[in-house]
Design a protein around this nucleic acid. Structure first.
Lengths: 110, 110
DNA sequence: CGTATGTGCAACTACTGAGTTGCAGGTTTG
DNA sequence: CAAACCTGCAACTCAGTAGTTGCACATACG
C-alpha cells in the first residue's frame, strides 16, 4: 500500500482549497481566472491554492493558448482513503482481540 | 450525506497528530504520558494534539483514576471518505459526459 | 504594433499552529 | 499528611501560510 504523503493531507486541510478542488472536479479543466467568479478570494489566492494542489499531485496543469487549465488527478485521494481504511482496520483488530479476551474470561472464570 | 467538518480535515493535516491517532487506534485507550515513549515530542505537545482530536470528534476521553485515557472514535473519518467519494463521483460523471460527447461526435461527424 | 486578457512573481501583513518550558492542581497510596 | 504520579494551564518562540496589493511578462487579436 502506498503511503499517503503529508502534502496531500496538508492540501486538504484548507476549506477554500477543498472548494477549489471540488470545483475543478465538477467543471473539468478550469483556469484560476474562471474560478474567481465562484470564490470569495482573489485570483492570486486561487493560483496559490492551485500550486499547492499541483505539488500534492491532486491536480495537473496544461497550458492552452494564453491560459492555464487545471484538471483533477484523483489518484492521491486513494492514498487518503487507504490510510483511513487502515486506521479502521487496526481499530477493528483491537476490538476483535478485546472480544476474544472477554470470551476467554467467560469460559475460564464463569 | 453528512458534511465533513473542517475540524476533521484540519486535525488530519499534521503528521504527528496522525501518528497519535494511529497509535490510539492500535493500542486502544491510551494516555498522553504513555504515548510520550513512542513520539519525539513532549507530553504537553501530545496533550494538545489530543485536544484537537477530541474537538474534531476523532477521539473520546475518559478519566480512569488519576489518568485520562483516549480512545478512537472513527465515525468522523467516514465523513472524509464520503467527501473523497463525492469528488470521485463528480469526476466520473464528468468523464461520462465527456465520453458521451465524444461518442456523439463520432456518430455525427464520421 | 498596440491592446485585451490571462498568468507569474515579489513583498507585505496578519494570523494560526506546533512545540517548548515552567509551574500549579488533583488523585491515589504509604 | 506527604510523596509520587499524572494532568492542566499559561506564556513564549518560531515557522508556516492564507490572503492581499502591485507590477511585470506572455499570448492572441484587431
Amino acid at each position: 500500500m502506498r503511503e499517503a504523503s503529508d502534502a496531500v493531507f496538508a492540501a486538504l486541510a484548507d476549506p477554500t482549497r477543498r472548494r477549489v478542488l471540488r470545483l475543478v472536479a465538477e467543471r473539468g479543466p478550469t483556469s484560476a481566472t474562471l474560478l474567481v467568479r465562484e470564490l470569495p478570494v482573489t485570483r492570486q489566492a486561487i493560483a496559490k491554492h492551485l500550486v499547492v494542489l499541483t505539488r500534492a499531485g491532486l491536480v495537473t496543469r496544461q497550458r492552452t493558448g494564453p491560459e492555464v487549465r487545471y484538471a483533477l488527478a484523483p489518484e492521491p485521494l486513494d492514498d487518503v482513503s487507504a490510510w483511513i481504511a487502515e486506521i479502521g482496520a487496526r481499530w477493528d483488530e483491537r476490538l476483535a482481540r478485546l472480544r476474544q479476551v472477554v470470551l476467554d474470561q467467560e469460559i475460564g472464570g464463569f
